[in-house]
Write a protein that binds this DNA or RNA. Structure first.
Length: 953
RNA sequence: GCAGGGGUGGCAGAGCUUGGCCAAAUGCGACGGGCUUAGGACCCGCUUCCUUUAGUGGAUGCAAGAGUUCAAAUCUCUUCCCCUGCACCA
């Protein structure tokens, strides 16, 4: 049993000592690999290995390919999560404490984690340790941290440029808001991490006849306004007549609804009215001028929207149901209301689900579709509503006067527009999944933030530059290219400033802090100059400094004097950037395509000259744990250190990084990991045993192993180039073991061949399983580091289809023999004493080749008839034409699969002769071999090329 | 709703871009056998059905249905189902 931990520790120490992973400017071609830096609110778990490990595999592979590789790493700590973390821990949040226990965070450390900076540093260390143990070939000298002062200087410089170029804009923006704590709330700030879902709806004002007062309704479907027949209120609720800042007239709004709306509208209450009193009102449809009554609606909720609902019984099942119920209870007004149909599903088109007659009310038809009716439960009516809404917005066409033929979304925009213009309606934002609570337990509302700062990714020219750049960016896997294309097209305004969190003050308005994805778009460039930056005091890191180091602007001499920075340091920084940033590969997970990675492209285009724009982006799948998504709440997270401790970094790396292709999710399971561990051990043991093997001239099986090896080198190299690691890794590990086992079973015993084979396989495995590869490499006599050895080159001349085909023949002979023996024993005949293999004569091979070439029995027979000796060879002259025709006709059935083959009878004879003891041992009987023409067996004629006739005798 | 990705044998997961060599790799599991005091380790075999006095044969088959073709898991169309993302959040 190998001790992975010991081997890993040993080689990690050796690598550190020799500094082979420290990247410095040199004569070789540079290659820089960066992965999205980890956020420091927890140690790493094995899921993180996917991105960082894949980046490491690429870094190691490129190094072996002769590049000067730099793989730097940093830490991310800006934004709100660490603050929230500290706050939660102060409040002794049990959920968080449970999570921390998974990671074995000691109790006394938890007590210290009320200080955000302490948390950040603690986890930064933890993560660094984990990455070190995982064997990532990182140059730690370049470590950066997004909450350090130099980083802020860097970000200020970046935003200065963005501002100068006019990419910053201001505007209104709705956000989830905690009214008690007065701050914006995103998913991470809510109880149970619920995303506050904000949607836009339309407020519509219905004038109360002759009073100058308005009933204010809210709706998601203003296009149904022509179909409104009445309004609904909740009779038991209290309503208020209010004034709204900036609007004339006064408005009825449910009392309960005022508070949530107050963050979007300035509302003052004039008087309160019981809902019942509103029932007598007659209102005017602002669009059509129609007069309509106000009725009590059973489903109206006073805290939703404005607490008033416009009723469209033709298209809203709830409205329909409410009217029906009123009618049944004897309400004469309700009984007099006729639904007004304003939308029709286009006939002939992929119709809506509900089948209806001309006369039907759609809302009723949708209820009927679900076997529901006006009296059904709210849930059932809700279902019908969703279904109808979906169908109508997809396939519906307006039939209302003035909007005939418009699609529903178009009509919606048009009517909304008309309402806005006439002052009878306006947009409101609602929290559709209300109630949502913030972590301290308060109900969240929607607030319109005025003067929010945005980065304008919608800028046309900017967008075009990015779109133009993108085709030249290599994307791995290529299938995610399309996702990027739509992301580049789609990305628009993005809020960049927040009221709170760790990070850099927004230079344009220092009351705000730069949002943490926006401060992480070009930081990879900072790695290139980190060694210089670290040694400079932050106040010297002015825009002038970064302009020079990263953009080459200005004169080093002048800047050196004005900033008091050593000239050589400036030059070195500039050179370092120029050298490393030419050739970069960026690694991340697919969920970052729509934000980070796209912003990465945009910001590079905005700031750097063309030659330093992104060259390659690698997107990798996630890691499942035993087929399930890993999540803290499921408690199935495996901390990286636990995984490494238990199985060793190498087997873990193999399973998590390499066992599947890039984009697919990999599946962590203890069985798989230990299985890999055992297989690596087989390679190790084989290497240890090389010295005990013999030597001598090469045999068939040696050539076979060489062929397999060189083919392997070729395919592995090709798939490593595009990081499709599944094929590469199974070929390297699983197949290598199968091949070695076969080699030995077939009598292979050549130490030179095996050593060559193992050396190449070991080197190719090195990027994935670096530690054990290093160990095996040295076991095989290597004196250098496998990690920086030259990647193997395939020797094409050693690849032989023929040699490999011959081994396949051996296999099929064994399989067929077994089958024959089984049938013989089933039939209860006498026990055979030997297997006699009768090898087909050469004329059959030539006939087969002829057929493979002509694909026609007729044509093939023609050439046989015209000159049998030429077509089938001299020795075939004795063969009768009829026999040839029979043979060809039999073959014709498999014409499509027929291939020409260079294997002659002599080849086959010598192959079987050599393999007969092996075959014999596999079958359990003695094996003898004879030629078809010399066989006395009546069955001999059944022999075919590469399929000898098998006689059990 | 919009956008993207899928549906393959007990499970996981290849293959489908370039249709035939695919009853469909590989791993796991199940089963049978060997090794062994015993086995979780290792080795061999087997894992749709039928047929065959002997193997290199046939049928069915890769979500469902239809089509193109000498030939389809692979191409086209339709239907059904599943997953992911949709923003100010790292």
């Amino acid at each position: 049993m190998i001790n992975y931990k010991e081997i890993e520790r040993k080689w990690q120490a050796e690598w550190d000592k020799s500094k082979i992973f420290e990247g410095d400017i040199g004569p070789k071609e540079p290659y820089m690999v960066t992965a999205a830096y980890p956020y420091v609110n927890a140690p790493q778990h094995i899921g993180h290995m996917r991105t960082y490990g894949t980046a490491d595999v690429l870094a190691r592979y490129k190094r072996m390919q002769g590049f000067n590789v730099l793989y730097p790493m940093g830490f991310h700590g800006t934004g709100t999560p660490i603050l929230a973390f500290a706050k939660r821990l102060q409040g002794k949040d049990e959920e968080l404490i449970r999570e921390l226990r998974i990671f074995h965070i000691p109790h006394d450390e938890m007590e210290k984690m009320t200080d955000p900076l302490y948390i950040a540093n603690y986890f930064a260390n933890e993560i660094e340790n984990g990455m070190h143990k995982a064997g990532y070939s990182i140059d730690w000298r370049r470590k950066l941290f997004s909450i350090d002062p130099y980083y802020s200087k860097f970000i200020e410089w970046q935003f200065g440029i963005l501002n100068e170029k006019g990419f910053l804009t201001q505007g209104r923006h709705p956000v989830g808001w905690c009214p008690v704590e007065n701050n914006a709330v995103g998913m991470h700030d809510t109880l149970h991490d619920v995303e506050p879902e904000i949607e836009e709806e339309t407020a519509v004002a219905f004038e109360v006849d002759g009073k100058g007062e308005f009933m204010l309704c809210t709706t998601f479907r203003p296009e149904t306004l022509p179909g409104v027949t009445n309004l609904f209120v909740k009779a038991e609720a209290t309503y208020a007549l209010c004034n709204i800042d900036g609007r004339s007239g006064s408005y009825y709004i449910a009392k309960e609804a005022i508070e949530p709306l107050a963050h979007q509208l300035k509302i003052s209450v004039a008087k309160e009215v019981p809902g019942e009193e509103l029932l007598g009102n007659v209102c005017i449809n602002p669009l059509t001028g129609a007069k309509m009554p106000v009725l009590p609606g059973f489903f109206v909720k006073e805290a939703v929207g404005t607490g008033l609902v416009m009723s469209v019984p033709a298209h809203a099942p709830f409205d329909y149901a409410a009217l029906e119920r009123l009618r049944l209870s004897g309400n004469a007004v309700a009984a007099g209301i006729k639904p007004i149909k304003v939308i029709e599903i286009e006939p002939g088109k992929q119709a809506g689900r509900a089948k209806m007659k001309e006369s039907d009310v759609p809302a009723a038809a949708y209820l009927a579709l679900l076997d529901a009716s006006a009296g059904s439960s709210d849930n059932a009516i809700e279902e019908a509503t969703k279904l109808e809404y979906k169908d109508e917005s997809h396939w519906g066409r307006m039939i209302a006067k003035g909007y005939e033929g418009m699609s529903e979304p178009d009509a919606r925009d048009k009517i909304k527009d008309e309402l806005t213009k006439s002052g009878k309606g306006f947009s409101l934002f609602v929290l559709v999944n209300s109630p949502v609570y913030c972590r301290s337990g308060h109900k969240i509302v929607v607030k319109i933030v005025e003067n929010q700062w945005f980065l304008n990714y919608g800028d046309k020219e900017w967008k075009k530059s990015v779109a133009d750049l993108f085709p030249s960016v290599k994307v791995l896997p290529d299938k995610s290219r399309r996702v990027f294309e739509s992301a580049i097209e789609w990305i628009d305004l993005r809020a960049v400033a927040r009221a709170q969190g760790l990070g850099t003050r927004f230079p344009v308005d220092r009351n705000y802090i730069i949002e943490s994805l926006s401060d992480s778009t070009i930081y990879m460039s900072l790695y290139t100059i980190m060694p210089m930056v670290r040694n400079l005091p932050p106040e010297k890191l002015t825009p002038q400094f970064f302009d020079y180091a990263l953009l080459g602007k200005g004169d080093a001499d002048d800047i050196s004097k004005s900033l008091g920075i050593d000239y050589d340091i400036l030059r070195k920084a500039r050179e370092s950037f120029e050298y490393w940033y030419k050739s970069t590969s960026r690694h991340s997970s697919p969920d970052l395509i729509f934000n980070h990675l796209t912003m990465y492209l945009y910001n590079h285009v905005a700031i750097f000259p063309k030659e330093y724009w992104p060259k390659q982006i690698v997107v990798n799948g996630t890691v499942l744990s035993e087929g399930e998504k890993m999540s803290k709440s499921l408690g199935n997270i495996v901390p990286l250190s636990d995984g490494i401790e238990k199985y060793g970094a190498d087997p873990l790396r193999f399973v998590v990084i390499a066992a599947v292709d890039l984009f697919n999710d990999s599946n962590y399971s203890p069985d798989a990991v230990s299985g890999v561990g055992e297989r690596l051990e087989y390679l190790y043991n084989s290497a240890a045993n090389v010295g005990n093997l013999g030597s001598g001239s090469l045999k068939h099986i040696d050539y076979w192993l060489y062929s397999k090896l060189n083919r392997k080198i070729d395919t592995v190299t090709k798939s490593m180039d595009i990081l499709e690691l599944r094929v590469a890794s199974t070929d390297m590990l699983y197949n290598s073991i199968l091949e070695l086992k076969r080699y030995f079973a077939r009598g292979g015993d050549n130490s030179v061949v095996v050593k060559e084979y193992l050396s190449a396989v070991t080197l190719m495995l090195s990027p994935i399983t670096p530690h054990i590869s290093e160990e095996i490499w040295h076991l095989l006599g290597g004196q250098t580091f496998a990690s920086i050895e030259k990647w193997p080159m395939p020797d094409e001349s050693m690849v032989s289809d023929k040699v490999e085909r011959q081994e396949d023949i051996v296999d099929s002979v064994i399989a067929d023999s077994r089958q024959v023996l089984e049938i013989v024993s089933k039939k209860g005949g006498k026990h055979p004493k030997e297997i006699r293999l009768i090898v087909a004569d050469d004329w059959k091979r030539m006939a087969s080749n002829l057929l493979a070439e002509t694909k026609s029995v007729g044509k093939a027979m023609d050439s046989v008839k015209s000159d049998k000796a030429k077509a089938l060879g001299e020795s075939a002259t004795k063969v009768e034409i009829g026999a040839v025709a029979d043979y060809m006709n039999a073959l014709a059935k498999k014409m499509a699969g027929l291939k020409e083959s260079g294997i002659t009878q002599a080849d086959e004879l010598s192959l079987l002769e050599e393999a007969k003891y092996y075959i014999g041992s596999m079958v359990g009987l003695k094996v003898t071999i004879e030629k078809e023409s010399e066989s006395k067996s009546p069955r001999a004629k059944r022999s075919m090329p590469e399929k000898p006739c098998i006689n059990a005798e």
